[in-house]
């Protein structure tokens, strides 16, 4: 690894001040993505600001809202009683991601801040607009089996690999961030970005801001949920396609439904049109098929990922059926 300086502030203010002094710095929490990128020479910070001393490790219930500190470990969050009972979709998604060793290191904030990426982003001998703006995209004319089918641009077709974030997008979570000007709240679905003309930006967090917490508002989704992850091997692989479904059914009518996908876009991909099509309808295979048709209509595929459109079409129906019968 390239050399860097290291600081370990003991307050939120000191951490934000340290970043303000040195914009080439990076915050480090678990380090599972950042150190990997640094070893490959993809990210070369001159300073690391270790935020592990900050008091952001709490999981608590505020009224009906679940407050999750940014430094809560993925494994602790997945195993937490409140998460397992009140937000089982989140628990399932977390356990579908990475390995237990990585979940024991990775934090909630770090999971959100992991780079949207592909093999060309990691290969410093190849062009990549995300790593080096205006250098071109190696993936569009290259090997693009893993790449996006929704919301991509001519500049970047990489996907965000998180499972946790797909569940948080479906559950309409809110991100709490702190910066030099104080705190602000960002709806989870607005946190990550589509590539557009600025693929170097994965999210809307300002350089000198730090995620402090994520909040999940109350919702009725404790029973009819499913996190379906389809991948090249049975475990410990990124999703080719993943689908998070949460629905509230009474009297054989879907009263409320959320659907989000992973592995298909630059950010966790909500399916608002499919949700609308199913709200107030019966949970039947025909309706699920219609929703999957609506959801995949706008898919754009490349030379090697054409299968993802069919996989998404089938996976959405499977996840809906599993959730409905859960």
């Amino acid at each position: 690894m390239n050399p860097f300086s290291y600081v370990r502030p003991n307050s939120l203010k000191a951490a934000i001040d340290a970043m303000a002094r040195d914009h080439s710095a990076r915050f480090i929490a678990g380090g599972t993505n950042l150190l990997d990128l640094m070893k490959n020479g993809v990210t070369l910070p001159e300073k690391l600001i270790d935020i592990n001393q900050l008091p952001l490790r709490e999981i608590r219930q505020d009224g009906n809202t679940l407050h999750i500190g940014a430094l809560v470990l993925n494994s602790d969050l997945a195993a937490h009683e409140l998460v397992k009972t009140q937000h089982p979709l989140l628990s399932e998604a977390l356990l579908a991601g990475a390995s237990q060793q990585l979940r024991n290191m990775a934090t909630v904030g770090g999971n959100m801040m992991q780079r949207t990426r592909c093999t060309y982003f990691y290969d410093t001998s190849m062009p990549c607009n995300k790593r080096q703006p205006n250098s071109g995209c190696g993936a569009i004319g290259g090997i693009n089996r893993m790449h996006a089918i929704f919301g991509a641009s001519d500049n970047c077709i990489a996907v965000h690999p998180s499972d946790m974030c797909v569940a948080l997008a479906a559950l309409d979570a809110t991100v709490l961030v702190a910066g030099p000007k104080g705190e602000r709240r960002i709806p989870f679905t607005d946190f990550h970005r589509l590539p557009g003309n600025t693929p170097q930006l994965d999210n809307n967090l300002a350089k000198n801001e730090l995620i402090t917490a994520v909040e999940i508002p109350p919702h009725p989704f404790t029973k009819h949920i499913c996190y379906l992850k389809v991948r090249d091997r049975a475990s410990y692989a990124f999703a080719l396609v993943s689908v998070a479904v949460a629905m509230d059914i009474s009297d054989n009518v879907i009263r409320n439904i959320r659907i989000a996908m992973g592995g298909v876009a630059h950010k966790p991909w909500r399916l608002p049109d499919a949700e609308k099509a199913l709200t107030g309808k019966a949970p039947t295979s025909d309706n699920f098929r219609l929703a999957a048709t609506i959801a995949t209509q706008g898919a754009k595929t490349y030379a090697h990922n054409g299968f993802k459109k069919d996989l998404a079409f089938n996976s959405i129906q499977t996840a809906l059926l599993k959730a409905a019968t859960a």
């Binding site: 300086s5 290291y6 502030p9 003991n10 000191a14 001159e46």
Partner: peptide, 11 residues
């Protein structure tokens, strides 16, 4: 930085 931070090491 040393005025603000708990622990620090230079390159």
């Amino acid at each position: 930085a040393a005025q603000h931070d708990e622990a620090i090491a230079a390159v």
